[in-house]
């Protein structure tokens, strides 16, 4: 009988082994907080650097100002031209993108068969992986000349050009998230509707789409957040005139484009730099809220089907 000898060796798992387990647990838990820490740090550092502008110019003066002349002797830091540029480009991109993306999502989730579904999804995934600077480049080569020729504008660098390219850039987000939402609708609901004598399409728009509506809404919101935050493509395509636009064929400058274009040429610690950080803070707050609402909606939807 060898058992007693073996047991003596075993008894009392070493103190180091226990300590190691708890140290590792603590280390790992610490990393779990990384996301919260970084989000908080982003806010903090934007706010600290924006302080000078908020004190010297004032939040409302910037937010409601209609002129953006940051480099003249008495500079004007009005955000409205930039804000309206961002809103115009984003809204147009959504109008162009949402109907097509939702239709595509419905097709992929409800009508496409196994192989078609897989190939379509991976091609759309590829689209999401193309760097935004490359989208900008293709926009310069293809979209800008087309806009110039079709709408007879001077340069073709317009809000519309940016919006068209942006529409393609956010399509993968909207397609894949709304496809997920449609896919998550339990099959029992579909079968119930089909058994009542509805066609697949009737089932889709009477049952499936309404059931997935909150997820689809979240998809559109996330697409919107992405569009507002997109930088390189709009910087390369919208012409960057910092004036409140009258139409889609005007050249506009977005919040992101302004930060990207001007941050490289400012005096460190200067007022202009601080204003740009304020602009970043505004952008961060907008996208934070959009994403938060969208995530809460998605979470609620997930729980709904879990039951």
């Amino acid at each position: 009988m060898t058992a007693p000898a073996i047991r003596r060796q075993r008894v009392g798992r070493s103190v180091t082994s226990r300590a190691a387990d708890s140290i590792v647990r603590r280390l790992i838990s610490l990393n779990g907080w990384a996301a919260i820490v970084i989000l908080a740090a982003i806010f903090l550092f934007l706010a600290v650097n924006a302080r000078r502008a908020l004190e010297e110019v004032g939040f409302w003066v910037m937010s409601l100002g209609t002129e953006w002349y940051p480099t003249i002797p008495t500079p004007r830091f009005g955000f409205l031209p930039l804000l309206s540029g961002s809103v115009l480009v984003t809204a147009t991109a959504l109008v162009l993108c949402v109907p097509v993306s939702l239709a595509a999502a419905i097709f992929i989730s409800e009508f496409a068969g196994g192989r078609v579904k897989e190939v379509t999804k991976s091609i759309i995934e590829f689209m999401a992986a193309i760097p935004s600077v490359v989208y900008g480049l293709i926009g310069i080569a293809v979209v800008v000349p087309w806009v110039r020729a079709t709408f007879d504008t001077d340069s073709g660098l317009t809000a519309l050009s940016g919006a068209i390219v942006l529409a393609f850039m956010i399509a993968p987000t909207i397609v894949s998230i709304s496809e997920d939402a449609l896919h998550a609708v339990p099959n029992s609901l579909r079968q119930g509707s089909l058994a009542l004598g509805n066609t697949r399409w009737e089932t889709t728009y009477k049952v499936v789409v309404p059931s997935a509506s909150s997820g689809i809404l979240a998809a559109v919101m996330l697409g919107m957040g992405r569009a507002i935050g997109e930088t390189m493509a709009v910087l390369m395509l919208t012409g960057n005139a910092a004036v409140i636009p009258d139409s889609l064929f005007d050249s506009v400058r977005t919040i992101t484009g302004t930060i990207a274009a001007e941050m490289g040429n400012v005096v460190q610690g200067g007022l202009h730099q601080s204003v740009l950080f304020t602009l970043g803070l505004v952008l961060f707050s907008i996208t934070f809220l959009i994403n938060l609402v969208a995530d809460l909606v998605l979470e609620k939807q997930r729980r709904r089907w879990q039951r």
């Binding site: 989000l39 740090a41 982003i42 550092f45 934007l46 650097n49 935004s132 996330l222 957040g225 992405r226 507002i228 935050g229 997109e230 930088t231 992101t256 930060i259 990207a260 941050m263 740009l276 950080f277 970043g280 952008l283 961060f284 996208t287 934070f288 959009i290 994403n291 969208a294």
Partner: peptide, 10 residues
Amino acid sequence: GVPSIVYGLF
């Protein structure tokens, strides 16, 4: 969902 330019500022 935080815009990449915001990461740049950070």
